[in-house]
Structures are given as structure tokens and as C-alpha cells.
């Protein structure tokens, strides 16, 4: 009967005067790999803590696998896995001791659910007696994931799992998540990195406690209906300043080695190049480009 793994209905939560999330509605299907994309302070962590029953919302309610996060929190805690934003394992326990501890408090053993973590744990195995605080960032994330998985959760909540992790480990991490998805686990993952959005099946853009948009990553980017150019010249800083003075350029943001310029619909690349040339820029390159999630995000803000 229940088709959604997670149903969030009109949830709001504030801490004193500070509003963390307001009127959030969101449905996440079973077995979905869903991304919550937004900058720090956007309300992602608060939402995670409400869904994992750690926080009680001021208004609204949330249902995870048919269980109310407030009323049924005891049952809920048996079936979810949570990986908090900060590295939250015991730094003075070894890799193996951490994993064993979390297996025990979830009334299971490493052996019983080894098949779930095997892919990930084989990489950690050589360091199993090393203290957790002596691991690299990527290794710490893998261990934290193992600890969150060891009791075979139905829904996995990963709060910024790739923050502070090198690019290669981040890539590996997403591969692991996709493998877990194939095992039928619903995964809600948050990230401040817009480029990771495309790894998810669907994403929600969240900013200042509000959901701006929910869709597949491609639908989100293809829904961008404004004219967008990628511009480059020999002096990036001057380029940014100059572009921002142009009356037809609605928004200019640095984007790697290029500037992304959102303009009026009738502006052409040649026209921009011409103006920049007249302002003394050299090696000018202007090309139309397609929007990324970040462009959409900045546009929605």
C-alpha cells in the first residue's frame, strides 16, 4: 500500500528565532536514490534529524516506511541507517571495534550482514586494527557508511557524506551508493556539491529552509529557459567585473575557468565578444552553454 519510503508533510522547525525549515513537502519513492542539494545552512541537516526521529518538528509530520517519526520512533530506529554530516565515529576505537560496536547496539553481528558491506569493507580490512582517527577522509567515510549499513537498514540517510573527501573517493562513494540502491535500499543523500546532483535519480533543491524545486537532474537543468553563455578571457577578475556592468547580462558567476553569464534572449556570442574586445580583453572565448544544476540553483535564489 505504501509506495513512498519517505513522506514529508508541511514540516517546519525553528530554533528560537532562527527558522531552519519551513513548510517542506516531499515524497521519496521506495528504492530511490534521492539527493537533497543546497548550500550549508539551508536546512538539510535539520530535515535529516527530523526524519531520523532525533528532532520533533514544530508543525507537520513525516512518515518513513509507514512509521511516524514522532509516534513510532522506536520502531523507526530499528530500520533506518544514519550517517551524520560530521565524522561521528569513535576516534579512539579501531576500525573493527567501531564496526563491531555498531553491529552490537543494533542487535546484530558483522558476520550476519557482512554481505551488505563486503564491497566497501574489503578496502578497509587492511587497516582494521588502525584507530579511526588515523584514517584518511575517504576511509573515514567508508567506515561510517559500513557502520550505518551493518544492521541492514531499509532506508539510509546520508548527510553530506562527501564533504571533506577527495575527488577520487567521492566518485567511488557514489558508485557504492548505486550498488546499495540495487540492493533495494532507499537512499536520501544530501550534498552541497552541485556537480554531484546528476548522480541522483531525483533531486530537491533546498535553500533557506524551503524546497525550491524537485525533479530529475536532467529535467531540472533542461527546465532552464534563459540564454546562457560560457565566457573566458586572459584576465578573469577584470572579466567578471566587466561582465557585471553589462546591462543585458542578468547574472554572472565564476564557473571554473569560465564565467557563466545569463543574458537577455536576443544577445549573441559575437556581440559579447565584441564588447569585451573593446574593453581590452585578449584571448576571448564566448560560447553558448547548457545549464548545470548550479546555474538553475543560482537562478532560483
Amino acid at each position: 500500500m505504501v509506495n513512498n519510503a519517505i513522506e514529508i508533510n508541511n514540516i517546519s522547525k525553528s530554533y528560537g528565532d532562527v527558522t531552519a525549515v519551513t513548510g517542506v513537502n516531499l515524497n521519496i519513492a521506495k528504492g530511490e536514490l534521492f539527493g537533497l542539494i543546497g548550500p550549508d545552512g539551508g536546512g538539510k541537516t535539520t530535515l535529516f534529524q527530523i526524519l531520523t526521529s532525533l528532532l520533533i518538528p514544530d508543525t507537520g509530520h513525516a512518515i518513513v516506511e509507514g512509521l511516524d517519526t514522532v509516534k513510532d520512533f522506536r520502531k523507526l530506529r530499528k530500520i533506518i541507517g544514519y550517517m551524520p554530516g560530521r565524522f561521528s565515529l569513535y576516534p579512539d576505537l579501531s576500525v573493527h571495534e567501531n564496526l563491531e560496536f555498531f553491529a552490537t547496539i543494533f542487535n546484530t553481528t558483522i558476520e550476519k550482514n557482512y554481505h551488505l558491506i563486503e564491497d566497501i569493507y574489503v578496502q578497509l580490512e587492511p587497516f582494521k586494527s588502525r584507530r579511526a582517527d588515523k584514517l584518511s577522509g575517504g576511509m573515514k567515510q567508508k567506515l561510517a557508511l559500513c557502520c550505518a549499513l551493518i544492521h541492514q537498514p531499509v532506508v539510509l540517510f546520508l548527510d553530506e557524506p562527501t564533504t571533506g573527501v577527495d575527488a577520487v573517493s567521492r566518485e567511488e562513494f557514489w558508485v557504492m551508493l548505486k550498488r546499495l540502491k540495487q540492493k533495494g535500499i532507499t537512499i536520501l543523500v544530501s550534498t552541497p556539491y552541485m556537480d554531484e546532483a546528476s548522480q541522483c535519480e531525483r533531486i530537491a533543491l533546498i535553500q533557506d529552509g524551503r524546497i525550491l524545486q524537485v525533479n530529475t537532474p536532467t529535467a531540472v537543468t533542461s527546465g532552464f529557459d534563459k540564454t546562457l553563455f560560457a565566457v573566458r578571457s586572459d584576465d578573469s577578475y577584470k572579466l567578471l567585473l566587466d561582465l557585471r556592468t553589462l546591462p543585458f547580462a542578468k547574472r554572472t558567476e565564476p564557473f571554473g575557468e569560465y564565467m557563466h553569464v545569463t543574458t537577455e534572449p536576443d544577445v549573441t556570442a559575437e556581440y559579447i565578444a565584441q564588447i569585451l574586445n573593446s574593453r581590452g580583453h585578449k584571448s576571448i572565448e564566448v560560447k553558448p552553454t547548457s545549464a548545470t544544476v548550479e546555474d538553475v540553483f543560482l537562478d532560483l535564489m
Binding site: Y82, P84, L89, I105
Partner: peptide, 13 residues
């Protein structure tokens, strides 16, 4: 402080 309490709370213990 280190956030491990959250993990303990989210467990069935």
C-alpha cells in the same frame, strides 16, 4: 559534542 550521541539515539538501544 562529537555527534556520536546522535548515532546512539538513532539506534534501537
Amino acid at each position: 559534542e562529537t555527534g556520536t550521541m546522535d548515532l546512539l539515539l538513532v539506534s534501537p538501544v
